[in-house]
């Protein structure tokens, strides 16, 4: 046993069976220390259930999940080690944001002053004394992050933190998480917003229908799929197709009249056209983005289960 020292979070053959639904199915992955890991999957893929099992809120049917080799429920003083933001609406409506944080401080034996410090960190100081029911969704997310940061933990876990945020809020969230990760924290953030993850994450773990689809550094996952496509436009489609067949590239005509070439770099496509004396109007290397990869990988698995 014993997790490698560089892994902060290890999910090991985790399974959750509800009456008829296998929400999480023999899922294993690890989250590396000091990096931002995006936990991606369509809605209903089992992301939230996985995170809740990781945090000891939901009991797994099988398997286990650990932080540095220890279950969350066995951690000494857990909120000083792991901070979690699970749902934006989890505070008493009639309690002020500051009192919500103080209540956590008291239970965890932290000084009340931490409440004010984390409110400042997330920019909520002006709304500290306002009741939670008067908070906007963005303010609720900020309060959730403030709560997670009370114990100044080394590991942060966030479930769909960008949900319901406006573009400015999303940008703020991204910058904050990047800054927190730059201080050496491990960040695990679930999302179904792929563009966002491409900007934020170092690694990705992709799940669908409760199963692991792919994990690894963002570049690697992108590189393994959907990359290296070249879009060309030419009045001599037939000649170019013949020339490209000679270098083992695959050509698929698109509805807009362009050709999408896979299996060859842009330079090779240009060279083949030049030697065959084919006139080109456009030659673009199209890099696959995470969204494309994601849709390919999870194709047919995103339905309602």
């Amino acid at each position: 046993m014993g997790a490698p020292a560089s892994d902060d979070i290890v999910v090991d053959h985790l399974t959750k069976q509800y009456k008829k639904l296998r929400a999480v199915d023999d899922l294993s992955f690890s989250v590396r220390s000091g990096r931002v890991t995006g936990f991606l999957g369509p809605n209903g893929a089992g992301k939230t259930t996985t995170l809740r099992m990781l945090l000891g809120l939901v009991t797994p049917t099988a398997g286990n999940a650990t932080f540095g080799g220890q279950k969350y429920t066995d951690l000494h003083d857990p909120i000083r080690q792991v901070g979690a933001v699970l749902e934006a609406s989890s505070a008493h409506r009639g309690r002020s944001g500051r009192n919500h944080l103080r209540m956590i401080c008291r239970a965890a034996g932290l000084p009340d002053s931490r409440a004010d410090e984390t409110l400042e960190l997330v920019g909520l100081t002006p709304a500290a004394k306002r009741k939670f029911k008067g908070y906007s969704l963005g303010m609720k997310q900020r309060l959730g992050i403030a709560a997670a940061m009370l114990g100044n933990p080394k590991v942060l876990i966030l479930d769909e933190p960008a949900n319901g945020l406006d573009p400015e809020g999303i940008r703020w969230m991204r910058d904050l998480l990047k800054a927190l990760a730059a201080e050496g924290r491990t960040v695990l953030v679930s999302s179904h917003l792929l563009g966002e993850m491409q900007l934020l994450a170092d690694d990705v773990v992709i799940v669908a229908a409760g199963k692991l689809i792919r994990q690894g550094p963002v570049d690697e996952v992108l590189g393994s799929m959907g990359a290296a496509q070249v879009r060309v436009r030419t009045p001599q489609a037939a000649e170019l197709t013949t020339a490209l067949a000679a270098i083992d590239a695959k050509v698929s005509p698109q509805s807009d009249g362009s050709l999408l070439v896979s299996g060859a770099e842009a330079a090779a496509v240009g060279h083949a056209a030049f030697t065959a004396s084919v006139e080109l109007h456009e030659l673009v290397s199209e890099r696959g983005d995470l969204e494309q990869v994601f849709l390919q990988l999870t194709a047919g698995m995103a339905g309602i289960r």
Binding site: G56, L57, T73, P78, L86, E87, S89, R93, A107, A108
Partner: peptide, 18 residues
């Protein structure tokens, strides 16, 4: 019951998993 009504049970049990 208010812990469940206001969904604060999550926070409570995160702070104190025991």
């Amino acid at each position: 019951t208010s812990e469940f009504f206001h969904l604060t049970a999550t926070t409570t049990f995160l702070v104190t998993p025991k």
